[in-house]
């Protein structure tokens, strides 16, 4: 039983947390792809940027000396999301919109997004150096432990407050996005444009407005994801750069352009990663006495060594690209 709880703490909670981050990022990537038809490579750095915006705001708020029951980094997230959305709009206006106006191919926009990636990275490191920052210098990070009322169970289910907040805000974001896309006029316009941009134009849908809304949503979600990731782990300039590939993997897994697919893809990858590095021998140990003599439980019985954790997503990505480039959830939604 204790081992099961260990499994739950390690694999399930880890998978949900990682999956939430991936899902939030992948939704942005997939929306941008659906509307503007290019792979926005700078998305990972928009996440990092969002994390730093929150960090600066949190610093300001902490300076005011007010005590909050929640992490300050979380309290300031709505404001940071607003700023990040504005920045996303600015980046589009400054770097992508002129290329679109010229009728540039999506590949050109992809290369431009590499340029944007480099600029954001350069700027962040210019101002913040290459060090690691923590949101919890002025506040303790709360750990939740839930003791289970069973006999013989000593190990509690445990997770941190940022992890709980991450999952809650992911749920809120996903539900809000769902209502936006299916109920609101603009959200439907967005789906229409992703479905058939020419017909959307013919219907009189204000495509420029839709593009702006897309950037606002993508920027805000990227900021949310970046901040929550930073709260859970720590804030580094290359925080999300390593994560941009798994995010693309998630978006492709779900079928580029499909919002729900991206969310599902994010969770699939999150679980795949944590389960792949999980040491399964832990779960075998209780059956030690029932196993045949010759079978000796190895100390580590994980599918891949933890050094290769990140590559799990890439391998899945490459396999999906080769076997089914339209994504595994095609036709399911959006």
């Amino acid at each position: 039983m204790n081992d099961l709880i260990f499994f739950f703490n390690q694999a399930i909670i880890g998978g949900v947390v990682l999956g939430s981050i991936y899902a939030l990022g992948a939704v942005g990537v997939t929306l941008i792809f659906g509307i503007l038809r290019f792979a926005h490579f700078a998305h990972g750095d928009m996440m990092t940027l969002g994390g730093f915006i929150s960090f600066v705001l949190a610093g300001i708020v902490a300076g005011l000396g007010i005590a909050f029951p929640l992490p300050i980094g979380f309290i300031v997230v709505p404001f940071a999301m607003l700023i990040a959305a504005g920045l996303a709009l600015g980046i589009d206006k400054g770097f992508y919109a002129p290329l679109r106006a010229r009728g540039a191919k999506p590949v050109t926009l992809l290369i431009a997004s590499i340029g944007v990636t480099m600029m954001i990275q350069g700027l962040i490191r210019l101002f913040f150096g290459v060090g690691t920052y923590s949101f919890f210098d002025t506040q303790p990070k709360v750990l939740h432990r839930i003791e289970l009322p069973f006999e013989g169970v000593t190990r509690p289910i445990s997770f941190s407050e940022p992890q709980l907040l991450l999952v809650i805000s992911t749920i809120i974001a996903v539900v809000a996005l769902h209502y936006f896309l299916t109920r609101s006029r603009l959200g439907k316009g967005m789906r229409a444009m992703a479905d058939n941009p020419d017909l959307a134009k013919v219907s009189g849908i204000n495509t420029k407005l839709v593009v702006r809304v897309t950037w606002i949503i993508a920027g805000a979600l990227a900021c949310l994801a970046g901040t929550m990731l930073a709260l859970d782990v720590s804030l580094k300039p290359d925080l999300a750069f390593n994560i941009v590939l798994p995010i693309f993997a998630a978006a492709i897994l779900g079928g580029l352009g499909h919002a729900y697919g991206a969310i599902a893809g994010g969770f699939v990858l999150g679980f795949a990663e944590t389960l792949a590095v999980f040491n399964w021998s832990v779960l075998l140990r209780p059956f030690r006495d029932n196993l045949p003599e010759w079978f000796e439980i190895p100390n580590t019985l994980s599918l891949v060594q933890s050094e290769y954790k990140l590559t799990v997503a890439f391998v899945i990505l490459v396999v999906v690209l080769l076997v089914r480039p339209t994504g595994i959830f095609k036709g399911a939604s959006t």
């Binding site: 439907k188 316009g189 789906r191 009189g204």
Partner: peptide, 15 residues
């Protein structure tokens, strides 16, 4: 709009 319902298609006409 193939991925949208008939009703939503009509709504898009009235955007």
């Amino acid at each position: 709009f193939t991925s949208m319902t008939v009703h939503e298609n009509l709504e898009m006409g009235a955007f």
